[in-house]
Design a protein around this nucleic acid. Structure first.
Length: 184
DNA sequence: AGGATGATTGCCT
DNA sequence: GGCAATCATCCTC
């Protein structure tokens, strides 16, 4: 298993995405193992980077191993990990294990399974916002911890997009009860 | 300068 | 299942 070497993120986003399943994400000590991620790259019409750099997606063309954070529908934040230039992995769900009390406070007392079962929910639970955009993932407040065992990974079409709908770049931990949606 | 849109969520029927 | 919320971004005029 390829895990968190210095060049971990200097690879195609789908490869990184697969290897991120089971890795624990912490923001100021709050988080848990990622169970659902999606890959996006510049050849992909669903990607923010498809039409080249803009002020919003600048982080996607910056150094790998940094965060790309954007706001969607004027309401929710979404967290990505930058990979090769113009590519990134969207963090869609994790198993809430660390800092449960803080997550529940931030999420209005939602049941555990719904604390981080979606990209917007996850950012609310971990208190991720625009201030995290462009920050390196190997320094505070971020921390990434390798898994101690391998996981059964399944793939499928990505969620909520209207272009590139058949590209199977959604990666999930098979059978996890913390996914945003079941695998199609 | 103006309008359409979105890598979502939660509430309503 | 349907749909409103809510606004920065991006494209077109």
């Amino acid at each position: 298993m390829t895990v968190l070497t210095p060049t971990f993120f200097h690879r195609p986003a789908p490869d990184v995405a697969r290897d991120l399943i089971g890795v624990t994400l912490l923001v100021d000590g709050v988080g848990g193992p990622m169970v659902e991620v999606e890959a996006y790259d510049q050849t992909d019409p669903a990607s923010h980077s498809f039409k080249g750099p803009t002020p919003r997606n600048a982080a996607m063309f910056g150094p790998p191993g940094h965060a790309y954070v954007y706001k969607i529908y004027g309401i929710h934040w979404c967290l990505n990990f930058v990979c090769q230039p113009g590519s990134a992995v969207l963090i869609r769900a994790l198993e809430p294990l660390h800092g449960l009390t803080q997550m529940q406070e931030r999420r209005g007392g939602m049941p555990e399974r719904q604390l981080c079962s979606g990209p917007g929910k996850l950012c609310q639970a971990l208190d991720v916002g625009i201030t995290h955009n462009g920050l390196p993932l190997d320094a505070a407040p971020f921390a990434l911890v390798p898994p101690d065992q391998s996981h059964d990974i399944a793939t499928g079409p990505r969620i909520g997009i209207t272009k590139g709908v058949e590209t199977p770049w959604r990666f999930v931990r098979r059978g996890s009860p913390f996914l945003s949606k079941p695998l199609r």
